[in-house]
Amino acid sequence: MRLRIKYSKTGQMAFLGHLEMLRLWQRAMRRAGLPVAMSHGFNPHPRLAFGPALALGLESLAEYLDVELAADREPDRVQVELQAQLPPGLEILLVRTIPDQAPALTAVIDVAAYRVNWLEEIDPGLLQQRVGALLARPEVPVRRTGRDGRPRVKDIRPGILKLVLDPSPDLAMLLQCGPAGSIRPEEVLKALALEAPARVVRTGLFARRGDDLLAPEDISG
């Protein structure tokens, strides 16, 4: 059976990278006695699949992980038993059964939501003005480093799906993510030319279906 797990990653857990999370979950599942299915082949490994990677240092209230089990387990019980094996800062928000043939998280998730808390006082009027100006621009080129190490320029404007003060002066963003290219929240902040220190939290991951945003736990096909 397949389980989809939604969890939050807060506090200093934000400093664990993707590989560290993979190992942490594998070991927590083994400690919890969860019968995780193993891949076949030369170098068998537990069948775990994560949603889109989260940048090191960012907290999240909505991370996802799919796990395939070799034997059926009650999702509620899995939640309790697995939670007991996790360090503070990782909290399982829900565990739900998904169909065996449901598409992978990375194949369906294409939107990420972020919230920006300012750590210093900021002028909401100025912020509103900057946001309006940014959204009015036809193109927002940012500098990135390519895989080959060479600098390249990327237009992030089409990937900014929503940018509002909500609740003011906090910023709420909806940014494109996934295989079509991911926009990072710090790129948006940079484009707004705001130097104030901020705490950025991922608040949601979604699949776009027309004008609707579907949460991964609600996707079945």
Partner: peptide, 20 residues
Amino acid sequence: IITNLLARVTKPARYLGTEW
């Protein structure tokens, strides 16, 4: 102070101290 330091170094997981 710790969080500030962690945000600025490579492999911050070296310094957390909350391992299992």
